[in-house]
Design a protein around this nucleic acid. Sequence first.
DNA 1: GGATCGACTGAACGTGCGTTTAGGATGATG
DNA 2: CATCATCCTAAACGCACGTTCAGTCGATCC
Lengths: 225, 225
Amino acid sequence: MRSVPLEDATAAARIREAAIVRFGRQGYERTSVREIAADAGVSPALVIHHFGSKEGLRTACDETLVRELMTEKAKTRAPAIAETMREWLDRPERFGAYIDYFATMLSEGSEGGNRLFDRLLRETATMLDEGVADGTMQPSADPEMRAIMITLNGLAPLLLRDQLVRVLGVPLSSPAAVQRMTLPILELYTHGLYADSRILDAVRAALEGESPTQAPTSPDSEGPA
Amino acid sequence: MRSVPLEDATAAARIREAAIVRFGRQGYERTSVREIAADAGVSPALVIHHFGSKEGLRTACDETLVRELMTEKAKTRAPAIAETMREWLDRPERFGAYIDYFATMLSEGSEGGNRLFDRLLRETATMLDEGVADGTMQPSADPEMRAIMITLNGLAPLLLRDQLVRVLGVPLSSPAAVQRMTLPILELYTHGLYADSRILDAVRAALEGESPTQAPTSPDSEGPA
DNA sequence: GGATCGACTGAACGTGCGTTTAGGATGATG
DNA sequence: CATCATCCTAAACGCACGTTCAGTCGATCC
């Protein structure tokens, strides 16, 4: 993937890689062009020369990541992003910066982050549909929403990786951490959490007893936009 | 909770509320003291006069939120934060700013965000332990990690609420959105996702067949920090 | 050999930031 | 009435930022 050592790469590539690391670790606003230039061993002016502006540099980083995550699908079957991300998680010492940058894209709401999220959601929905079709997965009363929620759940450890590292005590770079997350999630996705369906039944009954898209409470709207 | 209209509150309170709105909506770095001052109808100097610095203002906002979320527990039983947050979600026109600010705290990694996360995690773990004890919830091979993952899952819609709003088309302020999220999550937490336990069994067998905390792949460590 | 072009830099520019300073207005206190 | 503290502001300070500018260097082309 990255074939050339950073010192030998072109200056533009070095700048972009340094930016991915900094943006991913500290966020866009907290990172200065001067910092990135110093990391890449060039002058701040060269950053602007190559990318037009700091925002242009961010766009270039976004596109690098989108390409990296999206075009891997030639290798594998349908779930391109999910598969690539699993590879990344297995080799954090190499791709950790990309993971950080992806999480930053999502929480800072960049346009590339939106594209990746949409793609990830579509892949998830397809996977679920296929699973339901061939009987390996449970059907849902609201498949679209279920796909959204499962996608969100999958991204949560990425977005809250600092909290995860903090309460876990070990760096997320250790494969042990990723591994330990697997079993509880699989338990949840296999047997669920509740021992019986009383709560689900109660909610289902409540939802059927009223207008499907209307709130049950009285409309006491007020306040600003 | 907020008994006085903002125009009549003291200037310090007005500044703090304006800061919570701005910080929650745009993040700490993207918000200037001048913006907050303008929102509160005061001079930028007064912000510093009351809170010492921009960082001090952030701390004050953090503490306001922590207090608001933590001390509600007198009202209810054990799960204080979770209960309060559900109230907030039910009245977004009033507490939407708090929700946004809480999400910002978590993703920007403030110290108050850590405290709230720890508290939320502890509440979740307790709830799970009690559920397992009285038989309403499934046991887990790794209860601590399961509590973490379930806490992360619960926070995901908060952190990715922009994506959620985007793909859903409706503002998260509508109770319909919160309501529609409930059913798929309850389905998942009741019946799981997989129709049988083949994947779980396979992973369990794989995990038992090796050293419990060691990675299966060959150690090809390299690269920077 | 001169012209041309892209990569690249040092120095500077202008702007917006957080913060400081000096002081005005107001109300309580002797 | 004088004093004093509190709340508050206008103006400015210093700094770091993104960006611009003028020009150097080295390779390529005629």
